[in-house]
Amino acid sequence: MVIGATEPEGGSRGYVVEAGGAETLPFYTFEGLNPRPVLALEVYDCVEPLPSFLLESYRDVVSNPVEWARLVDRLEPDLVNLNVRSISPTVLDRSPKDALKTVEAVLQATRRPLMVTGIMDPIHRDDTARNMEFLRLVAETFKGERLLIGPATPEAFETVAEAALANGHNVLAKTNMDVNQAIRLNELLVEKGLTLERIVVDVTTGALGYGVEYTLSTMERFRIRGLKGDRMARSPLIFFASENLFIRELENGESGMAPIYEASSAVAGLMAGADIVSMLHPESLEKVRQFIDEFPWRGG
């Protein structure tokens, strides 16, 4: 998968990032080398779900997605993940059209390849409808930028798939910790015309102590099936280490440990086959990068 497009390619990014392409099990360096995993940092367009300790440390920044994107940009992640949650009727009920301004501003604030996600846990049917409307607008408005957009879910995937296809973007396919569901959704997206290298599989991440074992095992099963030749299991995998910032242990006085929780979980995700790891705490990125740096990767 390629995320982002430079100016000659019709986009405005400073570089493009490649994700996926594993040829062997993760960290089986004695068998062969896989491409270097992609590290993403998240930017939220509203503070509603964020843990209080993050708000306290980065108050001036996190309340402004553009400032936040600039901070994230300086930390040099491979990819920026803009989460637009404000469109949820139960959050800020911002209109998808209005939310496009934030996407535009973040695209101005960083030249790094961008991932744009809507409401990642659509609870209400309204959320899903909002996601579809928003993602379609994003796809159309930023045609040529080769974004990664999502989530596409088994309940709602057509709109995202069609919009991504028509406008040259990639799709984040989200299912619920079940390898067969993940493969099924891939089949549905492929039927819509998307190719597998344009789908990132998100099997849903559980935090450490909150179901991470389901995520890890689902990822391992998916990757093993893909390597054994199941074509529908050949997409890159994404792991949201950021889920760890929302656990109660951190709210209850362990907040100084937040980057360690997030980075430890990122390591577990990588060991299970994650091709992209998405993180939220600005201090987690460097730790995980140090980890990745100590292993050899295909193409250096």
Partner: peptide
């Protein structure tokens, strides 16, 4: 976190 990972 590592002990929680172990339990998981």
């Amino acid at each position: 976190p590592v002990m929680m990972l172990r339990q998981s």
